[in-house]
Computed example of a mutant assay.
Amino acid sequence: MGFLDNLSDMFSDITITKRKRKPMQTVEIKVKMDCDGCVRKVRNSVTSMKGVKSVDVNQKQSKVTVSGYVEPKKVLNKVKSTGKRAEFWPYVQYNLVSYPYAPQAYDKKAPSGYVKNVVQALPNPNAPEERLSILFSDENPNACTIM
């Protein structure tokens, strides 16, 4: 029994490290795709990654949406490995931005309903004159009660 006790002591000191599971993420990437072959090539490259749950390719918007337990940088590198020019999706929906026609936000190349995600398009929370001007605006339904 001396040998077995020694052996069990040796294995009890080894700590088993558990891997942290990556969080579920949705990664949106802008990729220039010209034909159905390009779409298939990008879809197959991303689908083969470990942890990918779903892949949605929209050729008209040049957008690839990947959901799963993946890292955004690895997905971007995998799409770039197909030989396509790719970048993270730089646009936000038009209705989520306060100033969609800010100098750098409006982009003619953006899909319909989207503008670029830039700081100038977002409202400045420290600007009190903007909040006061909204109070007396014609679009505010409660403006009559204030006056």
Rank of each mutant, 00 (worst) to 15 (best):
F11Q: 11
L76I: 01
P111W: 06
N140K: 04
M147I: 14
W89K: 04
G113F: 02
S98N: 10
D107G: 09
K80D: 10
K80N: 13
K20P: 01
P125I: 11
F11C: 12
V66L: 03
E139W: 01
T26M: 08
Y99D: 15
K50M: 06
A121N: 11
R85H: 11
P23R: 00
A110K: 00
Y99R: 10
S45W: 01
A121Y: 02
I146W: 01
S62P: 05
K50L: 05
K41A: 13
C144F: 08
R131I: 08
A143W: 03
F3G: 03
E71A: 11
V46P: 03
V31Y: 00
K32W: 00
T15A: 12
A105Y: 00
K78L: 11
M49W: 01
K60D: 13
S62G: 07
A86T: 00
G51S: 04
N140A: 05
F88A: 12
P72N: 03
A102K: 06
T82E: 02
D36L: 07
V27R: 05
F11H: 12
P72T: 10
Q104D: 13
E87S: 15
I146K: 02
L122A: 06
D36M: 08
C35P: 05
K41G: 11
Y106I: 15
S133E: 14
N126V: 05
I16N: 08
G113T: 06
K80T: 13
Y99M: 10
P23G: 06
N44R: 00
Y94G: 02
V27N: 07
Y91S: 02
R43P: 02
V42G: 04
A105G: 04
N44W: 00
V70L: 04
K78F: 04
Y106Q: 10
K108G: 12
Q93L: 08
G68T: 09
N58Y: 02
K41M: 12
A102V: 07
L76V: 01
N77Y: 11
P128N: 04
Y69D: 13
M49L: 12
I14H: 07
I29P: 04
L76P: 07
V55R: 00
P103V: 15
I16Y: 11
E129H: 12
M49H: 00
N6A: 14
E71W: 08
N117C: 10
K73Q: 13
A121Q: 06
A121F: 03
S8H: 09
E87N: 14
K32L: 05
P128T: 03
V70N: 02
D13I: 13
P111T: 08
D36I: 09
Y69R: 08
Y114L: 05
S54A: 03
L122T: 09
D5H: 07
Y101F: 12
Y101Q: 09
N142I: 03
K109H: 10
G37E: 05
K108M: 09
Y101M: 13
L96E: 15
I29N: 07
I134S: 06
K80F: 09
R43Y: 07
V79P: 08
Q120E: 15
S81E: 14
V75F: 01
V97D: 00
K80C: 13
P125H: 01
M1Q: 11
K18C: 06
K22M: 11
L132E: 14
V57C: 04
T145Q: 12
K32I: 12
V118K: 01
A105I: 09
S45H: 07
C38K: 03
S137M: 10
K22N: 10
T47E: 06
K73C: 04
E139L: 02
